[in-house]
Design a protein around this nucleic acid. Structure first.
Lengths: 259, 259
DNA sequence: AAGTGGTCTAGACCACCCA
DNA sequence: GGGTGGTCTAGACCACTTC
């Protein structure tokens, strides 16, 4: 039997006269049920028919609310059984072979970084999604740097890391040593795998000034999400703008798979 | 007005008597509309009320189907306006140890090539060097093509092949089938390995016209040298200009080699 | 004004799970 | 068998965009 407190709690967060759509109010009310611990992990929320009756709405409206929480990964429906609160764990299997990085092909050159800013902030919706952070759940560390090769700027990089996983790096001096190195040393995070996309874009005015190039000059935009060994979720999302006039990617093609 | 072909196409992929839920059939039918290029990017799919009438289902059922495609990022709804096919960047893998390519990850898209020219000519010094041809020793085949995805041009490609190794392909129709396929069939050349570089540049006037983009738009320039199993020298050098607004590279990062 | 997607109803029957 | 979620109907009114 469900605790008696669920129904009063839900109704307290619902106002049918409000301009806010009912399904959104219901979604947030049910979310509160979980966040406040009124319904614990592995337990069920009330049946859809009960919710519909309590709120005085149709079952379809309840489903619209609950299904969104299911898609967010907060709830799990089991056919014929009920709707359960999930353990807070997100899946993220990584596979595929191959490696690569933006630091390759710079061998023999002198490199350094300049820190532009390192702040703890609230993630935007996009960043929260990339890091698989529940919206508003927590803070992220935002690190903005310029990387130099032989004294000229080569890339502008903005990294985002979940605060609660990576806060020890806040004490690091990233001017002289690498982010990944410090993540391993101070936060115990060793990067394991990830995914990146590479796009061709032109420099906007901000990047043009930072990279000392004209606006409109071609650049690479590299967006990478990295996973650490220790945790089953992303620990870094980084966007890197790289000068197209000073950098190229090199790829060795090997054997099979060629039509 | 929508092409007449949408309705017949959709109904062909729908069977109300099937045990498969209607909304799933509708979802896949609409997906087919996009993948087959019957509805192109930036265009709208038919209104929900039309779809409901055509399929003989209620509008809620149509919405259940369409909303899933919206969540997948394939469609975008604009209130009061319509449901639009999103402008998606195509992607190509970039395995460090394996295939590459601009031809993968185009699954479900209609692709074809247009031959601009196929001539036997004397190699320039640069091309001769790439193909490891003694200067003036022999001739090369120069093949220039535009590649299309869903009717819009995606890349402009110029391939160079040593004449004495590859002349059988001169009889091939490269409009319909791949260069590598024909090299294998008619010249007995199977591509084995190679090396490619990827640069970010902007379109010049020639490429802008061929790719139907403005001059100055960002592009990738991919330069690749390929070796065949049978011979110990390059058999193809190809330069490919790829539209940056329609294409991105995707790379899976795996384990080691991370600084 | 006409057409679009957004929200919502009050039911219905089904397949599935558990006691 | 009784309760659960899965699918589906045939409407309705609203808010928004476009013309």
């Amino acid at each position: 039997m469900l605790p008696l407190s669920t129904k009063p709690f839900l109704l307290k967060h619902f106002n049918p006269a409000s301009k806010i759509p009912k399904y959104l109010q219901i979604r947030e009310a049910v979310r509160g049920l979980i966040e406040k611990g009124i319904v614990l992990e592995q337990e069920t929320i009330p049946p859809e028919r009960d919710l519909a009756e309590w709120f005085g709405v149709s079952r379809m409206t309840v489903r619209q609310a609950v299904d969104e929480l299911v898609r967010e990964g907060l709830l799990e429906k089991r056919l014929g059984d009920g709707t359960f609160v999930k353990d807070q764990k997100l899946s993220g299997r990584m596979h595929g072979a191959g490696s690569f990085s933006d630091e390759i092909a710079l061998s023999g050159k002198r490199t350094h970084s300049k820190m532009l800013g390192q702040v703890v902030t609230r993630p935007t919706e996009q960043i929260a999604k990339k890091l698989e952070i529940e919206e508003g759940e927590t803070s992220v560390i935002r690190i903005e740097r310029i990387r130099y090769v032989n004294e000229y700027p080569i890339s502008h990089q903005i990294s985002y890391l979940p605060f609660n996983l990576c806060y020890p790096i806040l004490s690091a001096d990233l001017n002289v040593s690498s982010l990944y190195h410090h993540l391993a040393q101070s936060a115990g995070m060793v990067m394991k795998a990830g995914k990146e996309t590479i796009q061709a874009i032109v420099a906007d005015d901000v990047n043009a000034e930072l990279l000392q190039i004209p606006v409109g000059q071609p650049c690479f935009l590299l967006c990478r999400t990295m996973y650490a060994e220790q945790v089953n979720r992303p620990v870094e999302y980084v966007e890197t703008m790289i000068r197209g006039d000073k950098f190229m990617f090199v790829n060795q093609i090997d054997g099979k798979g060629i039509e």
